[in-house]
Design a protein around this nucleic acid. Structure first.
Lengths: 194, 194
DNA sequence: CTCGCGAAGCAAATATCTGTGCTTATGATG
DNA sequence: CATCATAAGCACAGATATTTGCTTCGCGAG
Protein backbone atom coordinates (compact mmCIF):
# COMPACT_ATOMS: atom_id res chain seq x y z
CA UNK A 1 0.00 0.00 0.00
CA UNK A 2 2.29 2.68 1.19
CA UNK A 3 4.83 3.65 -1.41
CA UNK A 4 7.03 4.65 1.45
CA UNK A 5 9.72 2.59 3.00
CA UNK A 6 8.81 0.48 5.94
CA UNK A 7 11.27 2.90 7.48
CA UNK A 8 11.78 1.97 11.08
CA UNK A 9 11.97 5.58 12.14
CA UNK A 10 11.77 8.85 10.34
CA UNK A 11 12.29 11.50 12.90
CA UNK A 12 10.62 14.84 12.35
CA UNK A 13 12.44 18.05 13.00
CA UNK A 14 11.15 20.31 15.75
CA UNK A 15 9.60 22.62 13.20
CA UNK A 16 7.90 19.74 11.46
CA UNK A 17 6.49 18.61 14.75
CA UNK A 18 5.18 22.03 15.58
CA UNK A 19 3.55 22.38 12.23
CA UNK A 20 2.06 18.89 12.17
CA UNK A 21 0.67 19.24 15.66
CA UNK A 22 -0.90 22.60 14.94
CA UNK A 23 -2.53 21.22 11.84
CA UNK A 24 -3.75 18.18 13.74
CA UNK A 25 -5.41 20.39 16.32
CA UNK A 26 -7.16 22.35 13.62
CA UNK A 27 -8.27 19.17 11.89
CA UNK A 28 -9.68 17.62 15.01
CA UNK A 29 -11.29 20.88 15.99
CA UNK A 30 -13.00 21.08 12.62
CA UNK A 31 -14.03 17.47 12.61
CA UNK A 32 -17.82 17.38 12.62
CA UNK A 33 -17.72 14.08 14.40
CA UNK A 34 -16.62 15.97 17.46
CA UNK A 35 -13.47 13.98 17.96
CA UNK A 36 -12.11 14.52 21.40
CA UNK A 37 -9.14 16.77 21.59
CA UNK A 38 -6.86 14.68 23.74
CA UNK A 39 -3.11 14.74 23.54
CA UNK A 40 -2.83 11.14 22.36
CA UNK A 41 -5.42 11.75 19.66
CA UNK A 42 -3.66 14.87 18.48
CA UNK A 43 -0.34 13.08 18.48
CA UNK A 44 -1.64 10.21 16.43
CA UNK A 45 -3.26 12.51 13.91
CA UNK A 46 -0.07 14.52 13.61
CA UNK A 47 2.00 11.39 13.29
CA UNK A 48 4.25 12.31 16.17
CA UNK A 49 4.87 10.64 19.46
CA UNK A 50 2.63 11.90 22.21
CA UNK A 51 5.52 12.42 24.54
CA UNK A 52 6.83 15.05 22.18
CA UNK A 53 3.67 17.04 22.77
CA UNK A 54 3.66 16.56 26.51
CA UNK A 55 7.23 17.67 26.75
CA UNK A 56 6.99 20.62 24.47
CA UNK A 57 3.64 22.09 25.50
CA UNK A 58 3.06 20.49 28.84
CA UNK A 59 -0.72 20.64 28.77
CA UNK A 60 -3.59 20.71 26.37
CA UNK A 61 -4.43 24.18 27.57
CA UNK A 62 -1.06 25.52 26.60
CA UNK A 63 -1.17 23.81 23.24
CA UNK A 64 -4.62 25.12 22.49
CA UNK A 65 -3.60 28.61 23.49
CA UNK A 66 -0.60 28.41 21.21
CA UNK A 67 -2.62 27.26 18.22
CA UNK A 68 -5.38 29.77 18.79
CA UNK A 69 -3.00 32.67 19.15
CA UNK A 70 -1.10 31.75 16.04
CA UNK A 71 -4.16 31.26 13.87
CA UNK A 72 -6.15 34.15 15.19
CA UNK A 73 -3.38 36.63 14.70
CA UNK A 74 -2.88 35.34 11.19
CA UNK A 75 -6.55 35.25 10.17
CA UNK A 76 -7.86 38.20 12.07
CA UNK A 77 -5.24 40.90 11.73
CA UNK A 78 -5.53 44.61 12.15
CA UNK A 79 -5.51 46.86 9.14
CA UNK A 80 -4.94 50.55 9.04
CA UNK A 81 -7.46 51.92 6.58
CA UNK A 82 -7.08 55.54 7.53
CA UNK A 83 -10.40 56.01 9.26
CA UNK A 84 -12.10 54.72 12.35
CA UNK A 85 -15.07 53.48 10.41
CA UNK A 86 -12.86 51.73 7.92
CA UNK A 87 -10.76 50.09 10.58
CA UNK A 88 -13.79 48.81 12.42
CA UNK A 89 -15.44 47.49 9.29
CA UNK A 90 -12.25 45.78 8.24
CA UNK A 91 -11.95 44.22 11.65
CA UNK A 92 -15.56 43.07 11.59
CA UNK A 93 -15.16 41.70 8.08
CA UNK A 94 -12.20 39.63 9.11
CA UNK A 95 -14.23 38.41 12.04
CA UNK A 96 -17.23 37.48 9.93
CA UNK A 97 -14.99 35.65 7.48
CA UNK A 98 -13.47 33.73 10.33
CA UNK A 99 -16.84 32.87 11.77
CA UNK A 100 -18.08 31.53 8.47
CA UNK A 101 -15.59 28.68 8.49
CA UNK A 102 -16.07 25.82 10.91
CA UNK A 103 -12.42 26.13 11.74
CA UNK A 104 -12.72 29.78 12.63
CA UNK A 105 -15.76 29.22 14.79
CA UNK A 106 -14.14 26.44 16.71
CA UNK A 107 -11.00 28.49 17.08
CA UNK A 108 -12.83 31.39 18.61
CA UNK A 109 -14.89 29.08 20.69
CA UNK A 110 -11.69 27.55 21.93
CA UNK A 111 -10.78 30.89 23.42
CA UNK A 112 -13.88 30.79 25.55
CA UNK A 113 -13.56 27.10 26.07
CA UNK A 114 -11.21 25.07 28.21
CA UNK A 115 -12.91 22.97 30.87
CA UNK A 116 -10.87 20.32 32.57
CA UNK A 117 -7.67 22.31 32.13
CA UNK A 118 -7.63 23.54 35.72
CA UNK A 119 -6.09 26.79 36.84
CA UNK A 120 -4.02 27.65 33.79
CA UNK A 121 -7.22 27.78 31.82
CA UNK A 122 -8.39 31.08 33.19
CA UNK A 123 -5.07 32.78 32.72
CA UNK A 124 -4.49 31.58 29.18
CA UNK A 125 -7.96 32.35 28.05
CA UNK A 126 -8.01 35.78 29.59
CA UNK A 127 -4.74 36.49 27.88
CA UNK A 128 -6.10 35.54 24.49
CA UNK A 129 -9.04 37.78 24.98
CA UNK A 130 -6.87 40.60 26.25
CA UNK A 131 -4.94 40.39 23.03
CA UNK A 132 -8.12 40.90 21.03
CA UNK A 133 -9.11 43.80 23.24
CA UNK A 134 -5.70 45.34 22.78
CA UNK A 135 -6.24 45.26 19.04
CA UNK A 136 -9.41 47.26 19.42
CA UNK A 137 -7.70 49.67 21.74
CA UNK A 138 -5.07 50.39 19.14
CA UNK A 139 -7.81 51.17 16.64
CA UNK A 140 -9.28 53.64 19.10
CA UNK A 141 -5.94 55.23 19.75
CA UNK A 142 -5.21 55.66 16.08
CA UNK A 143 -8.61 57.28 15.66
CA UNK A 144 -8.01 59.59 18.58
CA UNK A 145 -4.65 60.50 17.08
CA UNK A 146 -6.42 61.53 13.89
CA UNK A 147 -8.77 63.75 15.82
CA UNK A 148 -11.74 61.41 15.57
CA UNK A 149 -13.64 60.63 18.75
CA UNK A 150 -14.10 56.90 18.93
CA UNK A 151 -16.84 55.21 20.95
CA UNK A 152 -15.93 53.88 24.36
CA UNK A 153 -14.44 50.45 24.62
CA UNK A 154 -17.60 49.37 26.39
CA UNK A 155 -19.69 50.38 23.44
CA UNK A 156 -17.47 48.56 21.00
CA UNK A 157 -17.54 45.55 23.25
CA UNK A 158 -21.32 45.52 23.37
CA UNK A 159 -22.10 46.32 19.79
CA UNK A 160 -19.27 44.93 17.74
CA UNK A 161 -17.28 42.31 19.59
CA UNK A 162 -20.12 40.69 21.47
CA UNK A 163 -22.30 39.88 18.44
CA UNK A 164 -19.38 38.33 16.60
CA UNK A 165 -18.23 36.25 19.53
CA UNK A 166 -21.70 35.12 20.41
CA UNK A 167 -22.27 33.88 16.91
CA UNK A 168 -18.93 32.17 16.82
CA UNK A 169 -19.45 30.46 20.13
CA UNK A 170 -22.97 29.26 19.46
CA UNK A 171 -22.55 28.66 15.78
CA UNK A 172 -25.14 31.18 14.63
CA UNK A 173 -24.56 32.30 11.09
CA UNK A 174 -24.28 36.02 10.59
CA UNK A 175 -26.67 37.68 8.13
CA UNK A 176 -25.74 36.87 4.57
CA UNK A 177 -24.52 40.30 3.55
CA UNK A 178 -23.71 43.70 4.90
CA UNK A 179 -23.33 42.50 8.44
CA UNK A 180 -20.05 44.25 9.22
CA UNK A 181 -21.46 47.53 7.93
CA UNK A 182 -24.68 47.00 9.86
CA UNK A 183 -22.84 46.55 13.13
CA UNK A 184 -20.54 49.49 12.57
CA UNK A 185 -23.39 51.74 11.53
CA UNK A 186 -25.26 50.92 14.70
CA UNK A 187 -22.15 51.67 16.65
CA UNK A 188 -21.07 54.91 15.02
CA UNK A 189 -24.52 56.09 14.08
CA UNK A 190 -26.39 56.20 10.81
CA UNK A 191 -24.61 56.64 7.51
CA UNK A 192 -20.92 56.68 6.67
CA UNK A 193 -20.22 60.27 7.60
CA UNK A 194 -16.78 60.21 6.02
CA UNK B 1 -12.67 15.62 64.93
CA UNK B 2 -15.92 14.56 63.43
CA UNK B 3 -18.71 14.48 65.98
CA UNK B 4 -20.34 11.93 63.75
CA UNK B 5 -20.17 8.24 64.17
CA UNK B 6 -17.48 6.36 62.37
CA UNK B 7 -20.57 5.03 60.71
CA UNK B 8 -19.63 2.35 58.25
CA UNK B 9 -22.19 3.63 55.78
CA UNK B 10 -24.75 6.37 55.84
CA UNK B 11 -26.62 6.11 52.63
CA UNK B 12 -28.07 9.26 51.14
CA UNK B 13 -31.50 9.29 49.65
CA UNK B 14 -31.81 9.94 45.91
CA UNK B 15 -32.94 13.47 46.55
CA UNK B 16 -30.01 14.11 48.85
CA UNK B 17 -27.69 12.80 46.20
CA UNK B 18 -29.19 15.01 43.55
CA UNK B 19 -28.94 18.05 45.74
CA UNK B 20 -25.43 17.33 46.93
CA UNK B 21 -24.17 16.68 43.44
CA UNK B 22 -25.70 19.84 42.06
CA UNK B 23 -24.17 21.86 44.84
CA UNK B 24 -20.81 20.21 44.28
CA UNK B 25 -20.87 21.14 40.62
CA UNK B 26 -21.63 24.73 41.52
CA UNK B 27 -18.88 24.77 44.10
CA UNK B 28 -16.27 23.35 41.79
CA UNK B 29 -17.41 25.64 39.02
CA UNK B 30 -17.02 28.64 41.30
CA UNK B 31 -13.72 27.51 42.69
CA UNK B 32 -11.14 30.10 41.67
CA UNK B 33 -8.51 27.41 41.67
CA UNK B 34 -10.16 26.06 38.60
CA UNK B 35 -10.61 22.58 39.94
CA UNK B 36 -11.30 20.15 37.17
CA UNK B 37 -14.87 19.17 36.81
CA UNK B 38 -14.47 15.43 36.58
CA UNK B 39 -17.05 12.97 37.79
CA UNK B 40 -14.78 11.55 40.49
CA UNK B 41 -13.98 15.05 41.74
CA UNK B 42 -17.62 16.02 41.84
CA UNK B 43 -18.52 12.80 43.60
CA UNK B 44 -15.91 13.29 46.26
CA UNK B 45 -16.94 16.87 46.86
CA UNK B 46 -20.57 15.84 47.13
CA UNK B 47 -19.71 12.99 49.43
CA UNK B 48 -21.35 10.41 47.22
CA UNK B 49 -19.98 7.46 45.37
CA UNK B 50 -18.97 8.24 41.84
CA UNK B 51 -20.90 5.32 40.47
CA UNK B 52 -24.09 6.97 41.64
CA UNK B 53 -23.33 9.85 39.32
CA UNK B 54 -22.35 7.67 36.40
CA UNK B 55 -25.51 5.67 36.69
CA UNK B 56 -27.85 8.53 37.20
CA UNK B 57 -26.50 11.04 34.71
CA UNK B 58 -24.38 8.91 32.45
CA UNK B 59 -21.97 11.62 31.39
CA UNK B 60 -20.51 14.86 32.55
CA UNK B 61 -22.26 16.62 29.71
CA UNK B 62 -25.66 15.47 30.85
CA UNK B 63 -24.94 16.38 34.44
CA UNK B 64 -23.73 19.83 33.50
CA UNK B 65 -26.76 20.37 31.32
CA UNK B 66 -29.03 19.36 34.16
CA UNK B 67 -27.40 21.69 36.65
CA UNK B 68 -27.30 24.58 34.25
CA UNK B 69 -30.89 24.19 33.21
CA UNK B 70 -32.11 23.96 36.77
CA UNK B 71 -30.19 26.97 37.99
CA UNK B 72 -30.68 29.14 34.98
CA UNK B 73 -34.40 28.66 34.89
CA UNK B 74 -34.57 29.45 38.57
CA UNK B 75 -32.32 32.53 38.50
CA UNK B 76 -33.19 33.91 35.13
CA UNK B 77 -36.93 33.55 34.75
CA UNK B 78 -39.30 35.32 32.43
CA UNK B 79 -41.65 37.91 33.77
CA UNK B 80 -44.70 39.34 32.13
CA UNK B 81 -44.63 43.04 32.84
CA UNK B 82 -47.25 44.02 30.32
CA UNK B 83 -45.00 45.74 27.83
CA UNK B 84 -42.22 44.76 25.49
CA UNK B 85 -39.84 47.25 27.01
CA UNK B 86 -40.66 46.10 30.48
CA UNK B 87 -40.20 42.46 29.63
CA UNK B 88 -36.86 43.06 28.00
CA UNK B 89 -35.58 45.20 30.84
CA UNK B 90 -36.70 42.62 33.36
CA UNK B 91 -34.97 39.94 31.38
CA UNK B 92 -31.79 41.97 31.13
CA UNK B 93 -31.91 42.81 34.82
CA UNK B 94 -32.12 39.18 35.76
CA UNK B 95 -29.22 38.54 33.45
CA UNK B 96 -27.10 41.30 34.91
CA UNK B 97 -27.84 40.07 38.40
CA UNK B 98 -26.80 36.59 37.37
CA UNK B 99 -23.63 37.85 35.80
CA UNK B 100 -22.63 39.75 38.89
CA UNK B 101 -22.23 36.57 40.90
CA UNK B 102 -19.29 34.31 40.20
CA UNK B 103 -21.66 31.40 40.22
CA UNK B 104 -23.91 32.95 37.62
CA UNK B 105 -20.99 33.76 35.35
CA UNK B 106 -19.62 30.29 35.54
CA UNK B 107 -23.05 28.85 34.96
CA UNK B 108 -23.54 30.77 31.79
CA UNK B 109 -20.05 30.03 30.73
CA UNK B 110 -20.78 26.38 31.27
CA UNK B 111 -23.40 26.61 28.59
CA UNK B 112 -20.78 27.66 26.11
CA UNK B 113 -18.22 25.39 27.62
CA UNK B 114 -17.75 21.62 27.57
CA UNK B 115 -14.94 20.56 25.28
CA UNK B 116 -13.79 16.98 25.59
CA UNK B 117 -17.36 15.80 25.68
CA UNK B 118 -17.25 14.97 22.00
CA UNK B 119 -20.40 14.82 19.91
CA UNK B 120 -22.98 14.98 22.65
CA UNK B 121 -21.51 18.29 23.65
CA UNK B 122 -22.87 20.17 20.69
CA UNK B 123 -26.36 18.83 21.11
CA UNK B 124 -26.66 19.49 24.81
CA UNK B 125 -25.17 22.90 24.60
CA UNK B 126 -27.24 23.92 21.64
CA UNK B 127 -30.30 22.80 23.54
CA UNK B 128 -29.48 24.97 26.51
CA UNK B 129 -29.04 27.93 24.27
CA UNK B 130 -32.21 27.14 22.36
CA UNK B 131 -34.05 27.27 25.64
CA UNK B 132 -32.81 30.79 26.25
CA UNK B 133 -33.73 31.80 22.73
CA UNK B 134 -37.18 30.36 23.19
CA UNK B 135 -37.63 32.60 26.21
CA UNK B 136 -36.90 35.63 24.09
CA UNK B 137 -39.21 34.40 21.38
CA UNK B 138 -42.06 34.19 23.83
CA UNK B 139 -41.43 37.79 24.81
CA UNK B 140 -41.64 38.77 21.17
CA UNK B 141 -44.82 36.84 20.66
CA UNK B 142 -46.47 38.40 23.65
CA UNK B 143 -45.53 41.80 22.33
CA UNK B 144 -46.89 41.01 18.90
CA UNK B 145 -50.09 39.82 20.53
CA UNK B 146 -50.42 43.20 22.20
CA UNK B 147 -50.01 44.96 18.90
CA UNK B 148 -46.45 46.09 19.54
CA UNK B 149 -43.87 45.45 16.85
CA UNK B 150 -40.84 43.87 18.46
CA UNK B 151 -37.35 43.97 16.96
CA UNK B 152 -36.18 40.95 15.03
CA UNK B 153 -34.63 38.09 16.89
CA UNK B 154 -31.35 38.93 15.19
CA UNK B 155 -31.43 42.41 16.62
CA UNK B 156 -32.17 41.18 20.10
CA UNK B 157 -29.43 38.64 19.73
CA UNK B 158 -26.88 41.26 18.74
CA UNK B 159 -27.82 44.01 21.09
CA UNK B 160 -29.19 42.37 24.19
CA UNK B 161 -28.17 38.75 24.46
CA UNK B 162 -24.69 39.04 23.03
CA UNK B 163 -23.42 41.73 25.41
CA UNK B 164 -24.68 39.84 28.44
CA UNK B 165 -23.26 36.53 27.33
CA UNK B 166 -19.94 38.00 26.33
CA UNK B 167 -19.53 39.59 29.72
CA UNK B 168 -20.52 36.41 31.47
CA UNK B 169 -18.15 34.28 29.47
CA UNK B 170 -15.15 36.54 29.78
CA UNK B 171 -15.90 37.82 33.23
CA UNK B 172 -16.26 41.47 32.27
CA UNK B 173 -18.31 43.41 34.79
CA UNK B 174 -21.28 45.28 33.39
CA UNK B 175 -21.49 49.02 33.99
CA UNK B 176 -22.37 49.79 37.59
CA UNK B 177 -25.86 51.09 36.98
CA UNK B 178 -28.49 51.48 34.35
CA UNK B 179 -27.03 48.83 32.12
CA UNK B 180 -30.26 46.94 31.40
CA UNK B 181 -31.98 50.18 30.46
CA UNK B 182 -29.03 51.23 28.34
CA UNK B 183 -29.12 48.05 26.33
CA UNK B 184 -32.86 48.11 25.85
CA UNK B 185 -32.84 51.77 24.88
CA UNK B 186 -30.27 51.09 22.23
CA UNK B 187 -32.37 48.24 21.00
CA UNK B 188 -35.78 49.89 20.97
CA UNK B 189 -34.59 53.37 20.31
CA UNK B 190 -34.26 56.43 22.50
CA UNK B 191 -36.51 57.05 25.46
CA UNK B 192 -39.18 54.90 27.06
CA UNK B 193 -42.02 55.62 24.69
CA UNK B 194 -44.60 54.19 27.06
C1' DC C 1 35.26 15.62 10.34
C1' DT C 2 34.18 15.08 15.08
C1' DC C 3 31.86 16.44 19.20
C1' DG C 4 28.02 17.58 21.78
C1' DC C 5 23.58 19.74 22.72
C1' DG C 6 18.66 19.69 22.04
C1' DA C 7 14.73 17.35 20.93
C1' DA C 8 12.14 13.21 19.01
C1' DG C 9 10.95 8.54 19.56
C1' DC C 10 10.31 4.32 22.31
C1' DA C 11 8.81 1.65 26.24
C1' DA C 12 7.18 0.98 30.54
C1' DA C 13 5.28 2.73 34.91
C1' DT C 14 1.71 5.48 37.13
C1' DA C 15 -2.33 7.80 37.83
C1' DT C 16 -7.22 8.65 36.42
C1' DC C 17 -11.21 8.11 34.56
C1' DT C 18 -15.09 5.11 33.12
C1' DG C 19 -17.97 1.32 33.61
C1' DT C 20 -19.95 -3.39 35.72
C1' DG C 21 -21.71 -6.93 39.07
C1' DC C 22 -23.22 -7.42 43.44
C1' DT C 23 -24.83 -6.24 48.13
C1' DT C 24 -27.86 -3.73 50.93
C1' DA C 25 -30.15 0.39 52.84
C1' DT C 26 -34.35 3.34 52.06
C1' DG C 27 -38.93 4.48 51.41
C1' DA C 28 -43.28 3.33 49.34
C1' DT C 29 -47.15 -0.06 49.11
C1' DG C 30 -50.35 -3.19 50.63
C1' DC D 1 -45.81 -4.62 60.00
C1' DA D 2 -44.04 -7.27 56.01
C1' DT D 3 -42.64 -7.05 51.25
C1' DC D 4 -40.63 -5.18 47.23
C1' DA D 5 -38.76 -2.06 43.80
C1' DT D 6 -35.35 1.49 43.40
C1' DA D 7 -31.12 3.36 43.79
C1' DA D 8 -26.75 4.08 46.73
C1' DG D 9 -22.41 2.21 48.03
C1' DC D 10 -18.47 -1.03 47.47
C1' DA D 11 -14.88 -3.57 45.07
C1' DC D 12 -12.77 -4.44 41.16
C1' DA D 13 -11.80 -4.54 36.12
C1' DG D 14 -10.79 -2.20 31.73
C1' DA D 15 -9.52 1.59 29.12
C1' DT D 16 -7.05 6.17 28.67
C1' DA D 17 -4.31 9.66 29.72
C1' DT D 18 -0.05 11.45 31.86
C1' DT D 19 4.64 11.10 33.15
C1' DT D 20 9.51 9.42 33.33
C1' DG D 21 14.08 7.20 31.95
C1' DC D 22 16.69 6.15 28.31
C1' DT D 23 18.18 5.82 23.42
C1' DT D 24 19.08 7.87 19.06
C1' DC D 25 18.92 11.11 15.41
C1' DG D 26 19.74 15.92 13.39
C1' DC D 27 22.30 19.87 13.19
C1' DG D 28 25.45 23.48 14.34
C1' DA D 29 30.13 24.73 16.54
C1' DG D 30 34.79 24.08 16.76
Amino acid sequence: MSPEQPSPRIRKSPEQVRSAVHQAVIDLLSDPEGADLTIPAIAQRAGVNHTSIYRRWGSREALLADVVTTRLERDWPLKDTGSLRGDLIAWAEAGVASIRTPEGRLLIRAVALSMPGSHTAQGERAQQFQRRIAAIESIRERAAGRGESPPSLEQILDQLIAPLYLRAIFGIDPPASGYPELLVNRLLGGAPGA
